[in-house]
């Protein structure tokens, strides 16, 4: 098994062939910490090297796909299902709807102030934000528009508790037309696509949050109780881009 030409030198990343093999070892995770750091520094600026890494991922995946599938025990799915379902502790739909009305009145007052003194910014290019409040009137989710208006980014702050099997659906309404763009996440950041026809009017769209069964149809006529409603607010001075 011995090989007369033993390699003792690290990869020379200035040579294309060596870069390519280093990409394979990067996926295998055999590079030393120093080699890995050099490789990652180069990869950060090299789309070719990023593509090389992805190509190796695809190729080395044959090691995974060639394994004989093994069925996990049936109870495992139940555990996962349990974890993705929202909890029902402390939920009061009536209270949430009532507080949403109070919040809406406050928004109207705020809008009046903003109309008296309009902000000095270009609403076409600014970030726009909507805050979905919990029944306790604390921020539960932040909904941002993308610069090109093709997406909404939803950041979870402190999600509202919901009954078992229920989710919060996020709808947009322009004129008489509705679009259900997605479900508000339980945690983390979620990217929701905005329908093409609505993108030009996105910042003027009305945002509606309803509570619906997980597997309900996205038919606006069958929308569940509305717990939040409002419009986007332009943010002055934001540098965030996505």
């Amino acid at each position: 098994m011995s090989d007369p030409h033993h390699i003792t030198e690290p990869y020379d990343l200035t040579l294309p062939e060596q870069r390519h093999l280093a990409a394979g070892e990067y996926v295998l995770n055999t590079l030393s910490p120093k080699e890995k750091a050099s490789f990652e520094a180069l990869m950060a600026f090299s789309p070719d090297l990023q593509a090389d890494v992805q190509q190796w991922r695809e190729q080395l995946q044959v090691l995974d796909t060639s394994l004989k599938p093994v069925q996990p025990p049936a109870h495992l799915w139940k555990k996962i299902e349990q974890q993705i379902k929202p909890s029902k502790a402390g939920f009061s739909l009536k209270f949430w709807q009532l507080s949403a009305m109070v919040s809406f009145s406050f928004s109207l007052a705020l809008a009046t102030v903003l109309l008296i003194k309009p902000p000095m910014m270009n609403a076409d290019t600014a970030d726009h934000l909507y805050v979905v409040n919990s029944p306790e009137q604390k921020p539960a989710w932040l909904v941002n528009t993308s610069m090109d208006r093709s997406h909404l980014m939803v950041q979870t702050v402190k999600p509202a508790s919901l009954p078992d099997g229920k989710v919060c659906k996020l709808w947009l309404k322009v004129g008489d037309q509705y679009a259900m763009v997605g479900v508000l996440p339980h945690s983390g950041l979620s990217k929701l696509s905005v329908p093409q026809w609505m993108q030009n009017q996105l910042v003027n769209a009305q945002i509606i949050v309803s509570v619906d069964p997980m597997d309900s149809d996205n038919n606006p006529d069958e929308m569940g109780p509305v717990v939040n409603k409002g419009g986007f607010t332009p943010l002055e001075g934001s540098l965030r881009r996505f």
Binding site: D3, H5, H6, L21, E25
Partner: peptide, 15 residues
């Protein structure tokens, strides 16, 4: 050095 060689040659052949 032997281990490094085996891996590099193996990746080359596999690819």
């Amino acid at each position: 050095g032997t281990v490094k060689t085996w891996i590099r040659r193996g990746l080359e052949r596999l690819k």
